[in-house]
Amino acid sequence: MRALTTAVSITAILFAGAIFGFFYAWVCSTMWGLDQADPRVAIQAMQAMNASVRNAVFFPAFFLTPVVMGLSAFLILRSGQKTSAAFFGAGALVYLALGLLLTAAINVPMNEALALVVVPKELDAAQEIWTDYSSRWQFWNQTRTIASGIALALAGYGLARLNPNRA
């Protein structure tokens, strides 16, 4: 049981770190770069990136992070380590609510609406579309970045508190 608990807990940390890194990269490079580009290019690039992100490589970190964190919490709780389990469980809930569900409720609908936009030839019209989209999208992306960072930190602390002789 100890080997399973350790493997699942480490997987939870890896998934949480991967999704935090994914969101963080959008914060500190991708969106800033798109904001500096011609807005017509930015819209087209964002449409292409949003279409390509739904893939098998992205799936585990995005969708399975709360599952693996929750499973870690369950396995750790079964070994009698309530504090460590609580940190993994809290991480799962934070990411589920403010990472996955927030994305589904806000970022995905914004991305789907942008996908329907025909990129205007006029620079001013494209700038208006991009500025409106980018500012709102970045606010919510920063929210899910912070949340996924908190989830990662909670799981990391839960792992640090784990007594390997009892897992």
Results as ranks from 00 to 15, higher is better:
residue 38 D to G: 08
residue 103 T to K: 04
residue 92 A to C: 09
residue 139 F to V: 12
residue 109 P to W: 11
residue 68 V to Q: 02
residue 166 R to A: 14
residue 133 Y to H: 09
residue 156 G to W: 05
residue 55 N to H: 03
residue 107 N to H: 09
residue 155 A to L: 05
residue 114 L to Y: 06
residue 133 Y to R: 01
residue 150 I to V: 15
residue 54 R to G: 15
residue 8 V to T: 08
residue 164 P to F: 14
residue 141 N to S: 07
residue 100 L to R: 05
residue 80 G to W: 11
residue 115 A to R: 12
residue 12 A to N: 03
residue 105 A to K: 15
residue 160 A to I: 13
residue 136 R to Q: 12
residue 94 V to W: 01
residue 121 K to S: 10
residue 101 L to I: 12
residue 105 A to S: 13
residue 149 G to M: 04
residue 139 F to K: 13
residue 167 A to S: 13
residue 166 R to K: 15
residue 50 N to E: 07
residue 162 L to A: 10
residue 164 P to M: 11
residue 3 A to Q: 13
residue 38 D to N: 13
residue 143 T to I: 11
residue 10 I to L: 15
residue 28 C to A: 08
residue 42 A to I: 06
residue 100 L to V: 13
residue 40 R to N: 05
residue 106 I to K: 14
residue 126 A to L: 08
residue 120 P to Y: 04
residue 164 P to L: 13
residue 90 A to V: 08
residue 97 A to P: 05
residue 30 T to P: 02
residue 164 P to T: 10
residue 42 A to W: 05
residue 162 L to T: 10
residue 104 A to M: 12
residue 96 L to W: 10
residue 30 T to C: 05
residue 140 W to V: 03
residue 65 T to F: 02
residue 34 L to N: 03
residue 23 F to P: 01
residue 23 F to D: 12
residue 98 L to P: 00
residue 8 V to M: 04
residue 87 F to M: 11
residue 62 F to D: 08
residue 17 G to C: 08
residue 48 A to D: 09
residue 19 I to H: 05
residue 36 Q to V: 07
residue 154 L to N: 00
residue 147 A to M: 06
residue 21 G to F: 07
residue 55 N to E: 02
residue 54 R to C: 06
residue 42 A to T: 05
residue 57 V to C: 07
residue 84 S to N: 10
residue 123 L to C: 02
residue 35 D to Y: 06
residue 54 R to W: 12
residue 123 L to W: 13
residue 73 A to N: 03
residue 46 M to P: 00
residue 132 D to F: 08
residue 167 A to Q: 04
residue 110 M to N: 05
residue 92 A to W: 09
residue 119 V to W: 10
residue 167 A to N: 06
residue 120 P to T: 05
residue 151 A to I: 02
residue 131 T to M: 14
residue 55 N to I: 01
residue 94 V to P: 00
residue 154 L to D: 04
residue 140 W to C: 04
residue 138 Q to A: 07
residue 89 G to R: 01
residue 151 A to K: 03
residue 26 W to I: 06
residue 90 A to W: 07
residue 118 V to T: 15
residue 13 I to F: 11
residue 50 N to F: 09
residue 106 I to F: 02
residue 126 A to D: 02
residue 50 N to I: 09
residue 161 R to K: 15
residue 122 E to F: 14
residue 82 K to L: 13
residue 11 T to P: 01
residue 61 A to R: 10
residue 117 V to S: 04
residue 91 G to Q: 03
residue 97 A to N: 09
residue 47 Q to T: 02
residue 139 F to A: 10
residue 96 L to I: 03
residue 27 V to P: 00
residue 96 L to Q: 06
residue 59 F to C: 01
residue 82 K to H: 07
residue 70 G to S: 04
residue 118 V to A: 14
residue 106 I to M: 09
residue 1 M to S: 11
residue 3 A to S: 14
residue 113 A to F: 03
residue 160 A to G: 02
residue 161 R to I: 05
residue 140 W to F: 15
residue 95 Y to E: 07
residue 78 R to P: 01
residue 69 M to S: 07
residue 122 E to M: 10
residue 114 L to I: 09
residue 34 L to K: 06
residue 1 M to N: 06
residue 128 E to T: 13
residue 115 A to M: 11
residue 77 L to P: 01
residue 90 A to T: 09
residue 53 V to E: 12
residue 28 C to H: 13
residue 156 G to R: 06
residue 138 Q to H: 06
residue 113 A to L: 09
residue 119 V to Q: 05
residue 145 T to L: 03
residue 12 A to Q: 05
